[in-house]
Amino acid sequence: MHFQLTDDQRALQQGMRELLAGRFDRDALRAAVERPGTLDRALWRELGEAGFFALRLPEDDGGVGLGAPEAVLLFEEAGRALLPGPLIATHLAAGVVKGAADGSVVVTQADGPLIEWYEAADAVAGEEITDGATVPVRSVDPLTPLHRLHEPAAAGDPLVGLFTAAEQLGSAARTTEMAVQYAGEREQFGAAIGSFQAVKHLCAQMLARTELARAAVYAAAVTGDLADIASAKLLADEAAVRCARDCLQVHGGMGFTWEADVHLHLKRAWVRKERWVSQGALTELLAELLVEVG
């Protein structure tokens, strides 16, 4: 047993972090917020060239030939950076929908009652969506356009749950860092607010939540087991939403502004929480498994 990142996995993670730091920095993020519904196609193709979408395709089919653990590391980075777009649907469409693998085509897919990026996408994977089957939603997340389906689609591939959990993990880690940084800089009562235990303990709980979710998400990526993925999704949803909330609290009044990035993490975390299988169905699944084991 060696449940740690390998050197290759670390390098992959580092490479994606650097690519996104260069191509999707804070200015790019805020620019994206100002033009909702528009995807950066050049960035999408760069992601394709970097192997983001073809990562798990066999090398013989022009892919990178890696597995779910490596994909999870990439989606974690995407979650950290709040990278917009139907990343998971396009990744899962690689090798199925022409052009998905190299990033020349943007693919989306219905997920339960919702479909993300319906108008901006070039193709819809899975069941065809007929005219009039969708109605636009005024999305709470400025970086995720949403349509509602009159007829909800079937629950998606468990990999949708796993990769969404990985994005949530990345977001939780990022909001923890943001809170710690702000708590170390912001001064009140003549001291950095991070020197007060009430603030310190919020930050410590954020880290604990994130690291526990990390263990669950990485393990689910390795085993591919449905119960592990369900557990990981629940913990990662909780970590992303809760850490964003705590990060907002640590930022005080600034946290309630449009200008601070915290709300973008919180709103995206809410969107991701609705993906794949509902929270209620996930807990019912785990409860049933407890009975079966017994």
Partner: peptide
């Protein structure tokens, strides 16, 4: 049932964290 399920997820993750 929900409480037991959430505890199940929590303890599964604690086991993975131990292995980590």
């Amino acid at each position: 049932r929900r409480k037991l399920a959430l505890l199940s997820a929590e303890f599964a993750a604690l086991w993975r964290l131990t292995q980590w």
